[in-house]
Design a protein around this nucleic acid. Structure first.
Length: 209
DNA sequence: TCATTAACACGGG
DNA sequence: CCCGTGTTAATGA
């Protein structure tokens, strides 16, 4: 209950918070765990209490592409539409950190839409927020060169994890950006030479701007 | 021109 | 030894 209050008490009225705690399922997912895969039917909606989740799109060959991260206080827009429309998921959700979530059953989601104004606002706000994130992702892919995309990726990750040392390999970065490891290594080296980052094995230190 | 694939050497754990 | 890293050469879009 405490964690819900901390992140959501400014958003929701007391009665709703109580009901969330009563009907919601509190769950912890370990870093790296696959929460939702493409094609899954989603029957409950996850609200993030702590941690972070990355949302990925996949092409027909099974290559992933990072769309955006979810943080505490966020929820997944794809889940919203999946739950309400009984549709399959179009995206993959992977825990970026050990993450605590509250699972709200789909029936409650609908019930609250009419019962609580704050819930309705939250759902609409979430849609808007995720749409903006998507536009941002599209901008990156369409307009930024790979080196700029890489730097943005590192800084975004920096913000999400709230630490300047990223424990990540070049291959993992290449997977998220859907490019090859050779290119990532080369561009990282270039960023290091520019003094933007410091490279170590399995670790990248990002200097503040 | 810039990315990808394959291949190789280096070195730390 | 295995894996991550840094490079190169050939090929392609």
């Amino acid at each position: 209950m405490r964690a819900i209050e901390e992140n959501y008490n400014y958003l929701f009225e007391k009665a709703l918070l109580k009901e969330m705690d009563r009907v919601g399922i509190h769950k912890t997912v370990a870093k790296g765990a696959l929460l939702i895969d493409i094609g899954n039917y989603v029957r409950s909606m996850p609200l993030l209490k702590t941690g972070a989740i990355k949302i990925l799109r996949q092409d027909e060959d099974g290559n992933d592409l990072l769309l955006y991260f979810l943080e505490k206080g966020d929820t997944c827009a794809m889940t919203l539409s999946c739950c309400l429309g009984q549709k399959k998921s179009e995206i993959k959700a992977v825990a970026e950190l050990d993450t605590e979530i509250l699972l709200v059953p789909v029936q409650k989601m609908e019930e609250w839409m009419s019962k609580y104004k704050s819930w309705r606002n939250f759902v609409l706000e979430s849609y808007h927020k995720r749409l903006m994130e998507l536009l941002d992702a599209i901008d990156s892919i369409a307009f930024l060169k790979l080196d700029e995309r890489l730097e943005k990726y590192l800084r975004d990750k920096n913000d999400i994890l709230d630490r300047s040392d990223l424990e990540i390999t070049h291959q993992q970065i290449a997977n998220d950006l859907n490019t090859s490891r050779v290119v990532v290594s080369r561009l990282l080296k270039a960023l290091e030479n520019k003094g933007v980052i410091k490279l170590e094995r399995n670790r990248i230190h990002v200097f503040a701007k």
